[in-house]
């Protein structure tokens, strides 16, 4: 199970990276942490002609907080996000989610940008980005642009990035006062991709919930922001009735399909169970 032959290059600058991308186009793949790509190469599920290792662009690694925005460079490793005090303080949702990302050895190598750009629908970080209303900074040789997470995940392993574009960073609004996050996923074994997971973020003031964002993952081709379910909590206190309404509303938000281990019905059911549990966690209630 050896990777097929390819050529490798490690550019020293973004400009050089763009030149390489331009030259090799679709035949090239970007290599960041490699935790999905190298596995795919070993299994011969991917066979690029050129691998462009962007691991040398250290300026795109790191966490910066500025004017209400926390930026995570695309090459920031999962372990650095996991251990970052800024993340713990400003983005508790990510802080909660990171330990669920694969296993420690993979987090040591895997990058934030790699996970976002790979857009696995069962992965944690795309869903968290959705729940937190993040924007992604994307650049091509010609221009840079920002795409909101909700516009970014287009389909199965498919994103809004155009050929020639690179993901440079994720930008997150820092936690505002009154806002809370909660995260849970159901995986059969520690570190597995979840059957269903839920990243939730919202405001709780005087016992009243508002601006709730529920991002489910493992339930379709992309992570899904469940607007109908979230609406069931808008302006309400956490209650069994609100949970039931949200659970019922999920019908209109999610369209899970069967995977090899679980039926769509099981996924839908589990998504509903998680709705209650995660919202209870968010609202600080024991349940």
């Amino acid at each position: 199970m050896k990777a097929p032959a390819f050529a490798y290059v490690k550019p020293a600058s973004l400009a050089e990276t763009f030149e390489l991308i331009e030259r090799y186009g679709e035949e090239a793949r970007l290599l960041a942490g490699g935790q999905s790509l190298v596995a795919a190469l070993n299994m011969r599920l991917a066979a690029p002609r050129v691998l462009i290792d962007i691991g040398g662009l250290r300026e795109f690694a790191g966490i910066n907080v500025m004017e209400g925005t926390l930026a995570i460079g695309a090459l920031t490793r999962h372990r650095d996000v996991e251990r970052s005090p800024e993340i713990a303080r400003h983005l508790p949702l990510l802080h909660q989610a990171l330990p669920h990302v694969a296993h420690a050895a993979v987090r040591n190598r895997g990058t934030f940008g790699g996970s976002i750009a790979f857009a696995d629908p069962a992965a944690e970080l795309p869903a968290c980005s959705l729940a937190l209303d993040a924007k992604f900074l994307i650049a091509s040789k010609e221009r840079a642009r920002r795409v909101a997470a909700r516009e970014f995940f287009k389909g199965l392993y498919e994103t809004a990035m155009e050929p020639g574009e690179i993901l440079l960073a994720g930008e997150f609004p820092v936690l505002e006062s009154g806002y809370r996050s909660a995260f849970q996923e159901l995986a059969r074994r520690h570190g597995d991709y979840a059957i269903v997971g839920l990243a939730a973020h919202g405001r709780l003031a005087n016992g009243v919930l508002s601006d709730v964002r529920l991002a489910y993952f493992g339930v379709g081709a992309t992570p899904v922001l469940a607007r109908n379910a979230a609406a069931a909590f808008e302006g309400k206190a956490f209650s069994d009735a609100a949970v039931s309404a949200a659970q019922a509303a999920l019908e209109h938000d999610l369209e899970p399909s069967d995977d090899i281990h679980h039926s769509a019905a099981a996924k839908m059911h589990l998504a509903r169970v998680l709705t209650g549990r995660v919202m209870a966690q968010l609202a600080g209630a024991e349940r």
Binding site: G34, V38, A39, N42, R79, A105, N108, R109
Partner: peptide, 17 residues
């Protein structure tokens, strides 16, 4: 690698220059 444990099968030797 550089003080962090990694999956050796998911890292290319070339990346370890």
């Amino acid at each position: 690698v550089d003080g962090e444990m990694v999956r050796g099968c998911l890292v290319l030797a070339a990346q370890c220059d």
